[in-house]
């Protein structure tokens, strides 16, 4: 196992690993705090709209697919397809955020704020921090689409896949494990 076997820039992998560790720490902390009030956590979680999270998962993995296609097109020298792929990936990110805004608005209307229950503190922190990554990732995709250099597109796509990866790991503990 050598560093040069890693695809792309090693520093990107340091970022991916550190982001995974941060989110894993948050989810583990939530699972630990849940032990103090399992029934309360289950009741709080039951108020979330799991279908919106499922919809967002489909959106984000489809967006990741577009980023992967863009990366491949860029390596083949097809700049037009690469830009289309990056634009669709960013559009997927925007759609993800739009669903998240609708979800948060519904939660807040229902009186489910950050301090309603410890579960909601973790819920807003984990999903909000992830949403911030999505927003940043859209900016990264836009930046790499301007210059369209293969190594930069690969790095941008890798960041986007990391955002995707974190989401599939957040989904069960936050939304589904009652």
């Amino acid at each position: 196992m050598r560093v040069q076997d890693l695809p792309g820039e090693p520093i990107m992998w340091v970022l991916i690993a550190s982001e995974l560790l941060v989110f894993a720490a948050g989810i583990t902390a939530m699972a630990g705090v849940r032990l103090t009030d399992p029934a309360g956590f289950a009741a709080a979680q039951a108020q979330l709209h799991g279908w919106m999270a499922a919809l967002n998962t489909a959106i984000l993995v489809s967006s990741g697919f577009c980023a992967a296609l863009a990366e491949r097109a860029c390596h083949r020298g097809d700049g037009r397809r690469a830009r289309i792929g990056l634009a669709l990936a960013a559009l997927g990110g925007a759609a993800f955020l739009a669903v998240k805004v609708v979800e948060y608005a519904g939660d807040l209307r229902a009186g489910l704020g950050m301090e309603s229950h410890p579960f909601f503190t973790f819920y807003y922190l984990l999903t909000g921090f992830h949403a911030a990554h999505v927003l940043f990732g859209i900016g990264v995709l836009a930046l790499v689409a301007i210059r369209l250099r293969p190594e930069e597109v690969q790095a941008g796509a890798a960041f986007w896949h990391m955002v995707d990866l974190v989401w599939v790991l957040i989904l069960p503990p936050v939304y589904l494990l009652g």
Partner: peptide, 13 residues
């Protein structure tokens, strides 16, 4: 995602 989109090959470890 790791293997398919992030290209982490099976062989490298």
């Amino acid at each position: 995602i790791l293997g398919g989109f992030l290209h982490l090959g099976r062989g490298s470890g």
